[in-house]
């Protein structure tokens, strides 16, 4: 029953903050300019800052409110995500949640009845019995059966998730304090991805800047990881210093990045889009500030993008027209932190 309910909910559920669709042209434009502004030096930078202020003001005035309003607040539940695995995980989550709710209703309901019926003030007289072996046996066996019902689908999904074979491409993910390194193993492309500047400025203690004014506050990076849609991608995950954990909720799992050890996981996203996540293992003072952004592009677009990365000159040219992609040169410069 739980599963049925779960399926129903899964379809209805909207996009969370991490499951942004590819942004529309207008917001793209905004996005691009913001980044640009931050990379200009000297006077230009100051002008840029003013421009930024204006832009934020404009934002506040509702200029580009749609993109901010897309943030779903008061959210209650997990995302079903965008992969088969993440939806299976979501289904399991809903199943076990409902099982717990039902048991809870029964147990708490019985308690409530007892509390109302068997109170001294209503003249209840205490019985004297103190055990019932049959009841004990039943109440041992029934929970065991329920547990088996929970464990069964979990085992299936887990086995499915553990199978990293037959991946079409491999990406090495390395956690650093406090940024992520990505390397496309088969194509000699690698770069560092760190917290976007506007978030970084705003999050400083007493910055006077408002997180409300920053798009994808703390969930935006200078260079997102780009992967192709409809492709089984394997991630090999490790760390260069302390333990981190690579987590994009829409993909349905997190995997710890352990220094000196490789862990692997995989994903297969059907639909292009931008998916956000965060480091999920305490890794020092800026643990809260090393987000993850995965941009899933259609296969052909991805191929173009990758080719551009492999050839820096072409990439520089491409950058002028690229949307979210950044030149390799820029990425090679040390990130913040």
């Amino acid at each position: 029953m739980g599963v049925l309910l779960a399926r129903g909910r899964a379809r209805r559920s909207g996009n969370g903050w991490w499951v942004g669709r590819v942004p529309g042209p207008a917001s793209r434009y905004m996005d691009l300019n913001w980044r640009r502004v931050f990379r200009m030096g000297g006077v230009m930078k100051r002008i840029g800052t003013i421009y930024l202020r204006l832009a934020s003001a404009a934002l506040a005035l509702g200029f580009s409110l749609p993109s901010l309003a897309a943030v779903e607040r008061w959210k209650l539940n997990m995302t079903p995500g965008v992969t088969e695995v993440s939806r299976q995980v979501y289904d399991i989550h809903m199943t076990i949640l409902w099982i717990c709710i039902v048991i809870g209703v029964l147990v708490f309901g019985a308690m409530a009845v007892a509390i109302f019926r068997f109170r001294k003030s209503r003249g209840a007289v205490a019985a004297t019995w103190s055990h019932n072996d049959k009841a004990e046996v039943v109440l041992t066996i029934v929970p065991v059966l329920i547990l088996v019902a929970m464990a069964w689908p979990a085992t299936q999904v887990l086995i499915h998730m553990a199978d990293t074979r037959n991946a079409e491409m491999t990406i090495e993910v390395t956690g650093y304090q406090w940024k992520w390194g990505y390397r496309y193993v088969d194509s000699d492309v690698s770069f560092i991805s760190s917290l976007a500047r506007n978030s970084d400025d705003t999050r400083q203690l007493g910055s006077g800047l408002s997180p409300d004014q920053v798009k994808s506050y703390l969930l935006d990076v200078d260079r997102p990881l780009v992967i192709p849609a409809d492709t089984k991608v394997r991630f090999v995950i490790t760390s260069g210093d302390v333990i981190h954990s690579w987590w994009v909720p829409a993909l349905g799992w997190k995997q710890d990045a352990i220094p000196g050890i490789i862990n692997d996981q995989w994903t297969l996203v059907k639909e292009p889009g931008i998916y956000r996540g965060q480091c999920a293992e305490l890794c020092g003072k800026d643990h809260g500030f090393m987000p993850i952004v995965v941009e899933v592009k259609p296969k052909t677009e991805f191929a173009q993008w990758l080719a551009a990365q492999q050839n820096p000159d072409a990439a520089a040219a491409a950058a002028a027209i690229a949307t979210t992609a950044e030149p390799v040169a820029a990425a090679a410069a040390p990130g913040q932190g």
Partner: peptide, 17 residues
């Protein structure tokens, strides 16, 4: 053994050591 590429350590061995 894992660092040496045994069992679950194949990738660790392939990528790091």
């Amino acid at each position: 053994p894992w660092l040496g590429g045994d069992g679950d350590g194949v990738l660790t061995h392939e990528y790091l050591w």
